[in-house]
Design a protein around this nucleic acid. Structure first.
Length: 178
DNA sequence: ACTGGGTAAACAG
DNA sequence: CTGTTTACCCAGT
């Protein structure tokens, strides 16, 4: 399945989106060159992706502003495993400004011991922002990782009004205060 | 702060 | 199939 790319203009720079005949298959952060193209751009540019491009641009800008996209283009997860689909579907249920932990996602998909595997699935998410893996934190309010770079994760959460310190405050036994 | 055991899944060989 | 790696988690030191 070949794919076509287009640029997505935002106040934070130009993202790159990859479309297949089935839908949006990948989204790259500004500066991250064709890190994600599932396959090569080749042949005719399908008319289908025209509207998808607009939807993607709107949705990306909504998320960057800390809001929930009104509508998404179809997402092409055709390369993914069943486990990854389960995780990514679960991620899409997290609303802006809310966070969940890797362990909670694992429990939600019926595999409470698979927190680490959930982390791996998040790392393999080809469509960050629209599949909001940035709202998944490690236990104790720790940031965990982010494929696009941790500064992006922090920025996105901040835009949504998440205060990391308040999530961490709970379980520090010895703050060794001033 | 650092280490190690437990754990599930993807991947290379 | 086994071994290696991973955006984890918890309990010890």
């Amino acid at each position: 399945m070949n794919a076509w790319h287009c640029t997505i203009a935002t106040p934070d720079g130009q993202f790159t989106a990859w479309f297949t005949r089935r839908g949006l298959a990948g989204l790259n952060f500004p500066g991250a060159e064709p890190a994600c193209p599932p396959t090569r751009s080749d042949g005719l540019p399908p008319l289908l992706i025209g509207p998808w491009q607009g939807l993607t641009m709107l949705a990306v800008n909504e998320v960057l502003a800390g809001h929930r996209p009104k509508k998404l283009p179809p997402l092409d997860w055709s390369g993914a495993t069943d486990f990854q689909r389960d995780v990514w579907e679960e991620l899409q249920r997290i609303r802006p400004g809310r966070t969940r932990t890797y362990a909670e996602i694992a429990a939600a998909i019926g595999k409470p011991k698979a927190a680490r595997a959930v982390g791996a699935a998040c790392g393999a998410n080809p469509i960050p922002l629209l599949v909001p893996c940035h709202r998944v934190l490690a236990a104790g309010g720790k940031l965990g990782g982010f494929s696009g770079g941790l500064p992006w994760k922090e920025l996105l959460l901040k835009r949504e009004g998440v205060v990391l310190e308040s999530l961490q405050a709970r379980n520090v036994p010895r703050p060794s205060g001033t």
